[in-house]
Amino acid sequence: MALFGQTFITGVLMGGIYAIIAIGMTLVMGVMKIINLAHGALMMVGMYICLVLFEHAGLHPYVALIPTMIALFIIGYLLQKYSIGRVSGVETIIPESQVLLTLALGLAITEVIRVIFTSNYQIIHPALTGEYWHLAGMTIEIPYLIGFVIATIFVALLHFFLARTDLGQSVIATSQDKDAAVYMGINAERITNFTFGLGTALAAAGGVILMPLFYLYPHVWHPYLMKAFVITILGGMGSTVGALSGGLILGLAESFGSTYWGPQWGEVIGFIIFLLILLFLPGGLKRIIGR
């Protein structure tokens, strides 16, 4: 029973952190109809900013979270405005060229970080790292719990923002029909830049809450990009509830898979889910192409 409970808790907590990373991707994919392959690299940039803030300004990652998110919002906004957005003409849109561009950006960003910080593992031990809570034979790593709480708060705030504010509704409208949004007087270009910035900031938040739990190196983002992608397909584009439930499903599947099926299978399960969704629930994918 303790094993089951431990597995469940691990899955839920990890899933919450996956969700916040994925939610940024799902938003961008909703509005831009492209897979943003730079998403993971931008998350990693957020982690390095957090590292610098911790080492040089002594800010705990949970405090550094806000400045890091602001920085990444600006980086994302500008990147979209001056680079990715330029490739998208209204008439001559070739989605592939934008995807390729995001891939190139992701790799370039990684290289720049590698040059600045080297490939070495960066490890920080802020307060609460390695602190545990023991409960009925189960163990909860406190930074996981805090990370999960932060992630859920952001997901809830984002949900509220999208559903209840004009700006949020403009993001949704733009993702559903960009031209129609323009007819409504929405500046779709600025909404796209804004969404990209927002998605990037959320990815950075996901990265930052991993900092007390994990280690950092320039390629740290690879598995998270794949997970975000799986969750996006699983949860549906632009849907906060979808991303949260997708994150939880993936987290739980990985956790139960590795406990009851063998730890080498944990990660494989995500891709099995991904394939099953593509095969039997292709709605998600259809919407990406069906624009």
Binding site: Q169, I172, A173, Q176, D177, D179, A180, A181, Y183
Partner: peptide, 8 residues
């Protein structure tokens, strides 16, 4: 073709 926002 109306161009409503279908999911809103």
């Amino acid at each position: 073709g109306r161009r409503l926002f279908p999911e809103m």
